[in-house]
Design a protein around this nucleic acid. Structure first.
Lengths: 163, 163
DNA sequence: CAAATATCAGCCTCACTGAGATAT
DNA sequence: CATATCTCAGTGTGGCTGATATTT
């Protein structure tokens, strides 16, 4: 029989969509394990980071900034509020919206999770030099930005605010 | 309110695990749509490519080469056999194994899917130059190889065959 | 009326687990 | 006996859809 040692076919190694997916699987495994060990979750980190960097935000906007589905934002905000890491209050100037605000405890939690995640990235990327890591992230973000525009346009967003 | 135009926080943009996941989501969306349009599936392409490149193989080995779980290999092989793209027969020299072989129709199907996938890659990576695409794949494969060794070791594989 | 928001209820699939029967 | 293979049954969850109520 041809190949009883496991090696990946050239056709698959040369397929970017596949390589990126394999790495994403590994990355998510590491991240999810680490964050759940820290009593948190990918989505919550993303939302806390957004709230800290951009200030209070509607839930819809949180979804846009993080790429998390509107439907899942609800649950994640619930968790943040329940843990005391965020406050949710109705927007006085727009009755449709809730304004979500990060709390001091949320800021502390964000820092902790940031430390945890830094270790995870280091583990994930240990086979890459610092320069290579930068290149990788730059290329990935270029693709993500490119595709995200379409996604947002298709969904009819990217139209409110400073737009 | 801080940021009503949707832009991604720096903390998230600088997180490789996140960037890679965003791109993987976009990639899988494109690939799955295209392959299902061609009446096929990611897993089936991976297995056909493996069978063509390495020759007939046990199902367990197919799983190792493609990174597809043993459990999902069963269903994918079923589909290939039902479509006439592969044959499955018991291994005369090892009663535990099935030997899976690609058929001529399977080879033709593989080529078709290869064409479809080439277009998809081009669409996914349209914001990158040819050189950048190569760099991206090289870096991703380095990570995947690195992490895969561990995964295989943890699972107790990478022990049979040529060692 | 059209469009945006928050929420809920639920879907599908992928990656994965556990256990079994069989064979080495 | 320990280990490997194939198979099935089932799980968790991530990303997503559809619908509703509310407000703009």
């Amino acid at each position: 029989m041809g190949n009883d040692e496991h090696s990946v076919p050239a056709k698959l190694r040369a397929l970017p969509s596949r390589s990126v997916n394999q790495v994403a699987i590994a990355a998510n495994r590491l991240v999810d394990r680490a964050l759940s060990g820290a009593g948190s979750h990918r989505y919550r980190y993303a939302m806390l980071a957004t709230l800290e960097e951009f200030g209070p935000s509607s839930q819809a906007n949180l979804g846009r900034c993080t790429g998390i589905d509107r439907s899942d934002v609800v649950a994640a905000v619930n968790a943040l509020v329940a843990a005391g890491y965020a406050d949710r209050s109705p927007d006085p100037s727009d009755g449709r919206r809730n304004i979500v605000t990060i709390t001091p405890a949320g800021v502390r939690h964000l820092r902790e999770l940031g430390d945890v995640l830094a270790e995870v990235q280091d583990e994930l990327l240990r086979s890459l030099s610092a320069a290579e890591r930068e290149v990788l992230v730059e290329l990935l973000n270029r693709i993500a930005d490119d595709r995200d525009v379409l996604g947002a346009a298709r969904r009819g967003a990217a139209r409110d605010g400073q737009g």
